[in-house]
């Protein structure tokens, strides 16, 4: 377990220049629509996100890590199309691919590895996360945990810029979520060698609706 911990911290660090800081994980349109207005609402938002799209992303990251580690490159494109089908919002499909491209650019530059050549030019972020984890010698559960961490830490960091909230309250919510993220990472890793079509598919309808509305704004603080 101790093996690779430093590499996992590198991959999950919000300061990695992979573009995540420009995204609120759907929190900006949600706050604007009045659906989140306090710390309790933010915590419910984060839990819902981790349990749905976060968990799906984690399972796909774990599956990508597992497949690239056993050299099953052809399987990566099946993951891409299955993840597309699990993302009804075209805006969120686009955001996932933009973040994937940026993560691919960073990781293939700072830690060159033959695995990265197996990906297309605009792969989905969870798939890149899985491949990057494998390139760093990490396993499927690490890939899952890194993406789960990002799925809640991203909107949590954005919260301070979007609403009147005590940063300590935000991080208290993140602290309470740690056991949940561990549990979800275990569950996601259990799916690592499942058929792509059988991977988790938990949806988040309000996230899809919010993302499409957000896209139509002229002025916004975050890209998504």
């Amino acid at each position: 377990m101790a093996q690779g911990q430093a590499a996992l911290l590198l991959l999950a660090d919000g300061r990695l220049p992979a573009g995540g800081y420009a995204h609120s994980g759907g929190l900006e349109p949600t706050v604007q629509a009045g659906r989140v207005s306090d710390a309790a609402g933010l915590e419910r938002f984060l839990v819902g996100r981790a349990e749905t799209t976060g968990f799906v992303a984690a399972a796909f990251a774990a599956a990508a890590c597992e497949r690239v580690a056993r050299d099953d490159t052809a399987a990566l494109s099946a993951l891409e199309s299955e993840l597309d089908a699990r993302t009804p919002s075209p805006e969120l499909r686009s955001v996932s691919r933009i973040l994937g491209r940026q993560l691919l650019r960073v990781m293939s530059t700072i830690h060159p590895h033959p695995h990265f050549a197996r990906l297309g030019t605009v792969p989905h972020q969870p798939v890149v996360m899985g491949v990057a984890a494998a390139a760093l010698g990490l396993g499927p559960r690490d890939a899952a945990l890194a993406i789960l961490h990002e799925s809640v830490a991203g909107p949590a960091a954005a919260a301070a810029k979007l609403m009147r909230i005590d940063p300590f309250d935000v991080h208290a919510a993140l602290a309470r979520a740690t056991e949940r993220l561990d549990r979800l990472a275990d569950a996601a890793a259990n799916h690592a060698d499942a058929l792509a079509s059988e991977l988790p598919s938990r949806g988040a309808p309000l996230s899809d609706i919010a993302a499409e509305h957000h896209r139509s704004w002229n002025v916004r603080l975050f890209a998504s």
């Binding site: 949600t30 659906r35 609402g41 819902g48 996100r49 938990r202 988040a204 309000l206």
Partner: peptide, 17 residues
């Protein structure tokens, strides 16, 4: 797409879901 609601499903009442 899957949707899970009810006492066993966490976070579904959140504004993300």
């Amino acid at each position: 797409q899957q949707l899970c609601v009810g006492p066993q499903a966490d976070g579904w009442r959140g504004a993300a879901v």
